[in-house]
Nucleic acid binder design. Structure first.
Lengths: 243, 243
DNA sequence: GTCTATACAACGATAGAC
DNA sequence: GTCTATCGTTGTATAGAC
């Protein structure tokens, strides 16, 4: 079974690794040429943006706010970004590359549909947990982007669903799952997974861990997948399960 | 079974009925004293605000935009609202009163837990379908409100969940449902219901109706509620079901 | 590379004519 | 009741010193 610890060792989600990718992609637009300083300040800018924008919205966050919280002056800020709009694009892009890859990587080598289903859910919850501020930002600010950027955001959403849809189709082909609508069920799973980063306050209040939440989603969806009459052997909790 | 038609005849969700309520609540702050004109223009302002704000966000919508799209001048606008912030409060409040009441009304007289469960889901989907622009606005702009207004928004969210939680608890007490976590399951149902107005583009693409979506949520959740080994007699579709 | 000081546009809000 | 014209403020973005 995919544990949170295992997941974290597989995927490098450190701020620095992410900022490296952003820097590599945008070094043409970034005026600062000394890589160590550039990476350090880029990390500050992204952190501050996510913190401020997730509190009151990206539009409400002024660049003066950002300047204060990132510890950089207005002038210095503009050595890294060309405009406020470019900042939101920059943040949006870095996550997109990452998320598409992670889910596929974690599923590699897992053949059994039931195992694939559970692994995919766990991987996604762990990923969105590690990068909750990015996922929250991305969801809330997607419609403020330009047309083609928004298209890309929607495509990312659909691609996640396709992974689940294909697992369900495979399970049906092998006679393991009943005849639920694969597309709709995948959309439902997506909605449940999204709740983890959209309603953090709620689950924090319930003192839930990412692993417990993944188990909950699995427990909620799996019974609807299995053929009527088939009693599923669903794991009740990550801690007690012995797969 | 609660159909969309039945629901609409039970609850008056017309713009005018809603604007009456808003006017009644805010007539102290509204300078325009002639009721018919006030109601007409209030409806225009609310419609335009929801349309514009849901496209690019409330912060991004300028009052000049609103003035143009509502057909009122800047000056006239300020005869109805005291400030931009008051406008968002006004819109937020009108829905809150409504939503709390509707769910309870539709459940009145329905005793059987399974029926209550299905009716509650149908009622909520129909309600959010009729007022999708309001629910979308409310979800997206909740964090831009003041502290006590945001508290109220969260409370509204929790109250919906409590209705579902209580239905599950009742079903468990009567031995009809298995021992799922009532609070978590209610949160999951809430997440599924939210998807209907948060991802309209997706379901429009799938050519789904509100009734079909309600059936889908029921079909997805019900199997996890029933006791292991118990085969549920879930209705496959609102059209073919004969309850 | 980073700073301070400033330009310029756009915003929310109001005054006063009609 | 509704309009046009205008106020003061605040936002994004840049120029030039260090």
């Amino acid at each position: 079974m995919l544990t949170l610890k295992e997941f974290r060792s597989q995927v490098d989600l450190s701020r620095m690794a992410i900022c490296e990718a952003v820097y590599a992609r945008h070094h043409g637009h970034i005026q600062v040429k000394k890589k160590p300083t550039a990476l350090r300040n880029l990390a500050r800018i992204i952190d501050a943006t996510l913190a401020l924008a997730n509190r009151t919205g990206f539009q409400a966050m002024t660049l003066r706010d950002l300047s204060r919280h990132s510890g950089l002056s207005m002038g210095a800020l503009y050595a890294y970004i060309g405009s406020k709009e470019e900042l939101v694009r920059l943040i949006q892009e870095y996550g997109r590359d990452l998320t598409a890859r992670v889910l596929c990587d974690c599923l590699e080598g897992v053949e059994d549909p039931v195992q694939r289903f559970r692994t995919a859910i766990r991987a996604w919850v762990y990923l969105t947990d590690a990068l909750q501020d990015w996922f929250f930002f991305s969801f809330m600010e997607a419609r403020h982007l330009g047309k083609e950027q928004m298209e890309a955001a929607l495509q990312g959403d659909l691609r996640t669903e396709e992974v689940f849809r294909d697992i369900i189709l495979d399970g049906q082909a092998r006679g393991l799952f009943g005849d639920v609508n694969p597309e709709l069920t995948a959309a439902g799973i997506n909605a449940l997974l999204q709740d983890w980063y959209l309603k953090r306050w709620k689950y924090r209040r319930l003192k839930m861990t990412a692993e417990a939440y993944a188990d909950h989603v699995i427990a909620m969806v799996e019974p609807s997948l299995h053929k009527p009459g088939t009693v599923a052997s669903a794991p009740t909790s990550a801690a007690t399960s012995t797969e």
